[in-house]
């Protein structure tokens, strides 16, 4: 591999890793703070992508679709928490798995009834549809760089909210000791509802942003779900920074694995996961 290719592959890794972070961050928040194993997280990604498709077709613009889609996802998330997940906090993980697996089936079936089973494309917004010439024959789509930019901004924003705001403090406290926080007069149920809605919105946003480059198709959430769990486990459950670091590691491992070890490309990510877990069984950024 020559140096130019190496640099481009590095860019590929970063870009892929950042997109993975966007999906996994919601999962790690919900899993880490609320203790919910949410298998339906991939479905929220799928729902986001379909929302982008439907809303972009209706309004003619992906921007509008995202602006409308985020509040819808937040409301949907809050509703699900109120109707279903709120009843699960005191149950064991097996029952959570059962409910969220059921939700995957229901969401896929609803998707099939409402939008159908065809593959759809979403147009890249005109202002980002260009590309940058990187080498003689290869250019890089501007939209991919925009996605990376959005992911970085969101990572910083998440850090700020969780570490520097009152809401973030309550979230962290709730994570640490639910009963104590309640005793202090904080409405923990409301905190959980906010966190869950945020998790759903993050996954849906990832789906909306990815829809122009990944296309919109049935079961698109299932692959994302597995890789998201890998990231959450590598990064340390509940840690946003851990998810970021792990997503970048997975991005690099997958990209360079495909190029350098094509025979093992399907396994590289999982080998890395096994290695990290041997080194730090609770993930890179385990909670103190």
């Amino acid at each position: 591999m020559d140096f130019a290719s190496f640099l481009i592959q590095t860019l590929n890794s970063l870009q892929y890793g950042l997109l993975l972070f966007l999906v996994a961050s919601g999962l790690t928040l919900v899993f880490g703070i609320m203790g919910i194993i949410n298998l339906a997280h991939g479905s929220f990604y799928m729902i986001g992508a379909y929302l982008a498709f439907v809303l972009a077709s209706a309004t003619g613009s992906l921007f509008m679709a995202i602006l409308l889609g985020i509040p819808l996802a937040l409301i949907f998330g809050a509703f699900l928490e109120w109707a279903l997940f709120a009843h699960l906090y005191k149950r064991d993980h097996l029952e959570q798995v059962l409910l969220t697996f059921g939700l995957i089936l229901i969401f896929e079936e609803l998707r099939s009834l409402l939008v159908g089973d065809e593959v759809h494309g979403v147009d890249i917004p005109a202002m980002f549809s260009g590309s940058i010439q990187l080498s003689e024959v290869l250019s890089y789509p501007v939209y991919r760089l925009v996605i990376s930019g959005v992911c970085i901004v969101l990572a910083v924003a998440l850090y700020f909210v969780i570490q520097r705001t009152r809401l973030g403090m309550m979230i962290r406290a709730g994570n640490h000791d639910r009963t104590m926080v309640e005793a202090l007069g904080i409405n923990i149920n409301m905190i959980y509802r906010v966190v869950f809605a945020l998790g759903v919105a993050l996954a849906a946003l990832a789906g909306m942003l990815a829809s122009p480059i990944s296309s919109v198709f049935p079961n698109m959430g299932s692959h994302v779900l597995i890789i998201s769990f890998v990231i959450v486990v590598i990064g340390g459950i509940g840690s946003v920074w851990g998810a970021l670091a792990a997503a970048l590691i997975v991005g690099f491992a997958d990209t360079f694995g495909k190029v350098l070890l094509p025979e093992l490309s399907g396994m590289v990510v999982y080998i890395v996961m096994a290695g990290v877990l041997l080194w730090r069984p609770e993930g890179i950024f385990k909670k103190g």
């Binding site: 591999m1 020559d2 130019a4 290719s5 481009i8 592959q9 590929n12 870009q15 892929y16 593959v119 494309g121 080498s135 003689e136 024959v137 290869l138 991919r144 480059i213 990944s214 296309s215 919109v216 198709f217 698109m220 692959h223 997958d254 990209t255 360079f256 495909k258 190029v259 399907g266």
Partner: peptide, 30 residues
């Protein structure tokens, strides 16, 4: 898996006369 970017970079550095590819459905569209 549909993360093709690493392969596109590879193809650009090999510069073949043509590419033969099998994918189907959504993966092919992507």
């Amino acid at each position: 898996n549909v993360e093709f970017q690493p392969f596109l970079t590879e193809i650009a550095s090999i510069k073949p006369d043509a590419v033969f590819v099998f994918f189907a459905g959504a993966g092919a569209a992507k």
